[in-house]
């Protein structure tokens, strides 16, 4: 249990706060016009990435989505190199060639954010197959949005993971909207019953409660590590920003986001729980907040100062040999 270990609590909060600060700052900087392209922010969903990835090591793999910054941070990617990547600069985690939607670090078991909705689950099955074949003891987690949950690739992956008995955990991050379309409308049936139909356990979890996610993920991951096959978590959570930055979110209810931030914020809930239970001091958490704000300031400043890639970089890294 997360509550039982002070170090884990500090780690969970630090990671969630880092993601929040990172995303809030990218939101601000993007509005200022210094970040090219488009970005999809994870603010509001932090507990899911952190609650799951706290159980994983470098031999475990995750596949992410277009909304991938949080998964990258939770899986241990270099945050400053991520920021440079989002700015499209040299020294970015992908040399400025991937950008926000393709941040990856295979050495950390992070198989990439993915620009294709539903692109990740088959790849994650492959990582699980590697773990199973080479007997590494590793597991693989596919983060999928509610939009991605309707892709054939995702449903095919449920079946493949089941028939091959792969150590996979499908984490459906249901923030209520596939782009602008409500998941209540676009998802037929229920996520957990879909899992049951494929013969794997499906559990619905409160996505604003990192303790609940941590606990549910632990069970699913232990099950996978023990060779007992795949399972699914349906994580109900909320996103604070638009589908992409610049989305005016006219499809959302008036005051919806404000209410979420006020009453259902994962970081606020965490702070209240741990301070009321006397597990951590408010002062400790405030100190973390201050440190992270400064760290993200540095990350932005370093990204802005980093040079762009050069013409030579255009032609490299297409093939190992050609």
């Amino acid at each position: 249990m997360l509550q039982s270990n002070r170090q884990d609590l500090l780690k969970a909060y630090t990671q969630m706060r880092t993601i929040r600060e990172f995303e809030e700052r990218v939101h601000t900087e993007f509005a200022g016009g210094t970040i090219p392209g488009f970005v999809h922010l994870y603010a509001g969903e932090e507990a899911s990435a952190v609650g799951v990835c706290m159980h994983l090591g470098d031999k475990d793999h995750i596949g992410s989505t277009h909304r991938g910054h949080g998964h990258c941070i939770a899986k241990g990617c270099d945050v400053k190199a991520m920021m440079k990547e989002i700015y499209g600069r040299k020294g970015g985690l992908c040399g400025g060639k991937g950008g926000s939607m393709h941040i990856a670090d295979l050495s950390k078991g992070m198989m990439g954010a993915n620009g294709i909705v539903g692109g990740g689950p088959p790849l994650v099955c492959g990582a699980a197959l590697t773990a199973k074949t080479l007997k590494t003891g590793g597991v693989a987690v596919a983060f999928v949005g509610d939009g991605g949950s309707n892709q054939g690739t995702t449903l095919e992956s449920y079946n493949l993971a089941k028939v091959w008995n792969l150590p996979v955990i499908f984490v459906i991050e249901d923030n209520g909207y596939a782009e602008s379309t409500a998941s209540e409308w676009s998802v037929g049936g229920s996520q957990t019953k879909r899992a049951e139909a494929f013969g794997m356990p499906g559990t619905k979890v409160d996505g604003n409660d990192v303790f609940a996610i941590h606990e549910a993920a632990q069970e699913a991951i232990e099950r996978a590590r023990a060779g007992r096959g795949p399972s699914l978590l349906h994580v109900k959570l909320s996103r604070y920003f638009g589908h992409f930055e610049g989305d005016a979110m006219t499809y959302r209810a008036d005051g919806e986001v404000e209410a979420l931030r006020r009453d259902h914020d994962a970081l606020k809930i965490f702070r209240k729980r741990v301070t009321e239970a006397g597990l951590l001091e408010a002062g400790q958490l405030n100190e973390i907040d201050t440190d992270i704000a400064a760290f993200i300031d540095e990350a932005v400043a370093e990204a802005e100062a980093a040079p762009p890639p050069t013409g030579d970089d255009l032609l490299t890294d297409v093939y190992v040999s050609y």
């Binding site: 793999h61 088959p122 994650v124 080479l134 095919e156």
Partner: peptide
Amino acid sequence: ERVLDTPISESAFIGAAVGAAATGL
């Protein structure tokens, strides 16, 4: 274990082959 039959599910198993390749097979 090394000669795997698959369901008729090309998206999943071609993708799994790609993912397995990226992770060590």
